[in-house]
C-alpha cells in the first residue's frame, strides 16, 4: 500500500533580510506515513515541523526534493479535498460556529443536507453542539481550537494533519480529543499529529518521528522507542539498596537497572543476599527522555513549544 504522506529528500531554505541570509528550515528530510496510523511529529522550536506540514499542504514550495500526499504531488487541490488540516494558533473568520464549519465544508465540495448534517456531527464530536449558533469571536481560545478541529473533520478526511491541536485545551477537552483521534484511526483514517505535549503523543501515536534543526533524528514505533531493550529493571525485596549501585528503595522494595548482559549475575546476587525478586522488566524511557537525548538538550534548556 503506498504511503499516505511521503517526503522525499526535501530541503527548504528561506531568504531573510532581502536575501542576505539563508535559513535552512528542512534539510534532506525524508519520511513516509502509512495509512491507518496515528503518527507523532516531534521537535523543539524551529526544528522544521510546521514547515514540513506547510510543504505538504502546498502553502510553501520546497527548495529541493518532492513529496506526495494521498498519491498526488504536494499542493494538489484535489488531494486536499480528502485531507483535514488544523493549523497551529488557529485563526477563523468571525461568525457562528455552525455557519463557519459549513463554509469550510462547502469549500471541500460538500453541499446540501450532507453538509448540514456533517457540520452538526463534527460540532457534537468536539463538544460544541450547544454553542453552534454562537459567534466564534466570543469563544475562548480552547473553544476556537475545537471549532478548528471541527472544520478539519467536516469532510470526513482520509488524512488528518494537526499542528498542535490540544495546546489550548483543558484536560477534559484533551481527553475528548484524544478519544476522537483514536476513533478516527479505528475508522481506518490516518492522523499526522505535530505536538509538543509528549505525554499525549506517547498515549495515542503508533509511530513517532523526531526532528531537530531541520533533520530527522529519530523514527520508530512508539512502543519500541519507549522500551530501550538495552537495560532491565529489577525490583527485589529483602535486600539493602546500598548493595547495588544506583538502586532506590521505596515501600520495602529496592529498584535498580542493569545492562541486559549483567541481568543474570544481578539476579543471582539478589538471591545470594537472601532477597526475593519481585519483577524483571525492560527499562521504559519516556518520550521526553528520548527527546532530550536525541536533540542534545538539557531539561532546563528544553523548549518544546510552539513554532517549529
Amino acid at each position: 500500500m503506498p504511503p499516505v504522506l511521503e517526503f522525499e529528500d526535501i530541503s527548504k531554505e528561506y531568504n531573510r533580510f532581502m536575501g542576505s541570509r539563508r535559513v535552512v528550515a528542512l534539510e534532506h528530510f525524508s519520511l513516509e506515513v502509512q495509512a491507518g496510523e496515528i503518527f507523532g511529529f516531534l521537535g523543539p522550536n524551529g526544528a522544521g515541523k510546521t514547515t514540513a506540514i506547510h510543504l505538504a499542504m502546498g502553502f510553501m514550495r520546497s527548495t529541493r526534493g518532492r513529496g506526495r500526499m494521498l498519491g498526488k504531488t504536494f499542493g494538489d487541490a484535489r488531494a486536499r479535498s480528502r485531507v483535514g488540516f488544523l493549523a497551529e494558533n488557529v485563526a477563523l473568520y468571525h461568525r457562528p460556529a455552525e455557519q463557519l464549519v459549513r463554509f469550510y465544508g462547502a469549500l471541500n465540495n460538500l453541499k446540501g443536507k450532507l453538509l448540514k448534517s456533517r457540520a452538526r456531527e463534527v460540532l457534537e464530536a468536539v463538544g460544541l453542539d450547544q454553542e453552534a449558533r454562537r459567534n466564534v469571536a466570543k469563544f475562548s481560545r480552547g473553544m476556537q481550537q475545537r471549532v478548528g478541529l471541527a472544520q478539519a473533520l467536516v469532510n470526513d478526511p482520509e488524512l488528518l494533519i494537526l499542528d498542535e491541536p490540544t495546546s489550548a485545551l483543558d484536560p477534559v477537552a484533551r481527553v475528548k480529543i484524544r478519544s476522537l483521534l483514536l476513533s478516527v484511526r479505528d475508522a481506518g483514517k490516518t492522523v499526522f499529529l505535530s505536538s509538543h505535549l509528549l505525554s499525549e503523543v506517547e498515549l495515542v501515536c503508533d509511530r513517532v518521528a523526531m526532528l531537530n534543526k531541520g533533520r530527522l533524528v529519530k523514527l520508530g514505533k512508539t512502543s519500541e522507542l519507549l522500551q530501550s531493550g538495552q537495560e532491565m529493571e529489577i525490583v527485589a525485596r529483602g535486600i539493602r539498596a546500598a548493595s547495588f549501585p544506583g538502586a532506590s528503595a521505596a515501600d520495602g522494595a529496592v529498584r535498580f537497572a542493569v545492562p541486559v548482559s549483567q541481568q543474570k549475575s544481578a539476579l543471582e546476587r539478589v538471591w545470594d543476599l537472601g532477597g526475593e525478586v519481585v519483577s524483571v522488566n525492560p527499562v521504559r524511557h519516556s518520550l521526553e527522555q528520548i527527546f532530550l537525548q536525541v536533540t542534545g538538550q538539557q531539561p532546563e534548556q528544553s523548549a518544546l513549544g510552539d513554532g517549529g
Binding site: 502553502f59 485531507v83 488540516f85 493549523a87 471541500n108 478539519a152 469532510n155
Partner: peptide
C-alpha cells in the same frame, strides 16, 4: 496576516480560485 488564509487554502481551493 490573520492566518485565516491557511484554513481556506487547506481545502480543495486552488490559488487561482
Amino acid at each position: 496576516k490573520t492566518r485565516r488564509i491557511l484554513a481556506v487554502l487547506s481545502k480543495s481551493v486552488g490559488r487561482r480560485q
